[in-house]
Nucleic acid binder design. Structure first.
Lengths: 256, 256
DNA sequence: CGTTTGATTGACCCCACTCAAACGTGGTGG
DNA sequence: CCACCACGTTTGAGTGGGGTCAATCAAACG
């Protein structure tokens, strides 16, 4: 785990930060670990040179014995269909994990690509497993992380399967906003690291639809859009769109 | 935290079968475990009275320290949206696992409901974790299982996000067929345990669309449909529809 | 048997995709 | 510094896949 930057004026090899000091540790391993236990994590976390935009962290089929934590930058993961088109299955912001799909016989089943200059922590499973045997809190933390990943995928299934384009866009922006807030960044003003194309792909929409809805929401005063810079002006209205505000659970059609 | 059946004509307490003898063990824990290690599993697997159709195995919000393996029957898992509608995220056939979503603070994030009379093995995580510390193969097996679950969810995202109704239906039938084959049952002739409504919900379609496509595929001689009994007559054609056959990767529109 | 529930079929229509063209914006080289 | 190009984004017009509504049909059940 090391630090990053675009213009490399300095070597950052010496900028190693321990997991205990890492401002992201709360996100990687939120609960149930003592400071001493956190310290032991340092022993297992590996370094890695920053990825440039569009670099692959891993590809479908790559063998793997590690999981990854985004330290800075961002990563998209995607799966490919037999017909050749692909579905983005996740965007990974700093402090978020990825790579849990890599432990099957065939290696990774999805591909991870940096959306911008990105650095990641590499956590070898073998060592992590050893530690799990010793540190009681860690195994539970791993289970919690696994559950969270599964749950997030389920929510995405819900989105793709049941939501209208408007709801998808609103859900997407709320998701980004919340995750920004978790990182202790501004929740109502952020820059998207992915192009419209990727947003559309992720949400199961056409690029044009994404563009139109951004414009529509801006027209309605819900958000402000300046290229990839998004400002959320009316959070309650966004929540209403996805059904989180008014307890009056909307009666929908009989689709599904 | 669990549901149970109402009318009980027989007690099944004596129907205990060891994991080593269980004809499903290969599916639950396929690799890397010696027979002796398999035997140790018996110590941790709990019995449970069969569920009747529509009984809940667990509900969203239920605390949990276990995962479940379907022994006979079948189970659907679903998540609920803020607006009240729900998305089925999985059908679980005999020998398949579920419940990996239950280890977060808030308990389970999805609900599991029996599609028919169903019995499950209950595997407490606490004991499983203890065993993982002792048996080297088990931890890797758990990782493999986790990866598989994540991968399956990803493929479902691909389906919901990128496939046409025709491709979804074909993919669904191929999936069931393959899993039937894994269970050493007929791959080309099976009875669906779920109603059309659930298939539609799962695939992100309307019931009418499912019905129409079943009819259409039957008309084309690809399958035979008799209520819930499905016969696959032209497997290659099904594979062609989802793009698994002809290497000529279809060039699709610019959606996504 | 009547009733209920699930499945099918037909007619209609709308949301989101497609096609197409224009519009910044950023990077590059002259 | 500006002209140019490439790419991502926006906007408009038209259309079709799949949803909605409604009626019918077939099993299962009491």
């Amino acid at each position: 785990m090391n630090e990053v930057n675009k213009p490399q004026l300095v070597t950052f090899d010496r900028l190693k930060v321990s997991c205990a000091q890492c401002n992201l540790n709360e996100l990687c391993f939120p609960h149930g670990m003592s400071p001493e236990e956190m310290g032991s994590l340092d022993a297992v976390v590996e370094q890695r040179k920053p990825l440039q935009k569009n670099d692959h962290l891993y590809r479908e089929g790559d063998a793997s014995n590690a999981i990854y934590a985004v330290r800075s930058g961002s990563v998209k993961t995607l799966v490919e269909s037999p017909n050749g088109d692909e579905q983005i299955v996740g965007f990974h912001l700093p402090g978020e994990l990825l790579g849990l799909d890599g432990f099957m016989e065939g290696g990774h089943t999805c591909t991870a690509i940096a959306l911008e200059t990105t650095s990641v922590c590499v956590i070898p499973m073998l060592k992590l497993e050893e530690m799990c045997g010793v540190l009681p809190g860690l195994q539970h933390q791993m289970n919690r992380i696994m559950s969270k990943v599964v749950t997030e995928d389920h929510l995405m299934l819900l989105m793709l399967g049941k939501m209208s384009a408007e709801e998808k866009i609103a859900t997407f922006m709320l998701s980004i906003s919340r995750r920004m807030k978790e990182r202790h960044w501004k929740a109502s003003e952020f820059v998207l690291s992915m192009p419209r194309q990727d947003i559309a792909n992720y949400l199961g929409l056409a690029v044009e639809t994404v563009s139109r809805l951004f414009a529509q929401y801006q027209e309605a005063g819900i958000i402000k859009v300046d290229r990839r810079r998004i400002s959320i002006l009316d959070l309650p209205r966004l929540k209403t769109i996805v059904g989180e505000n008014d307890g009056a659970k909307t009666v929908k059609g009989h689709k599904g």
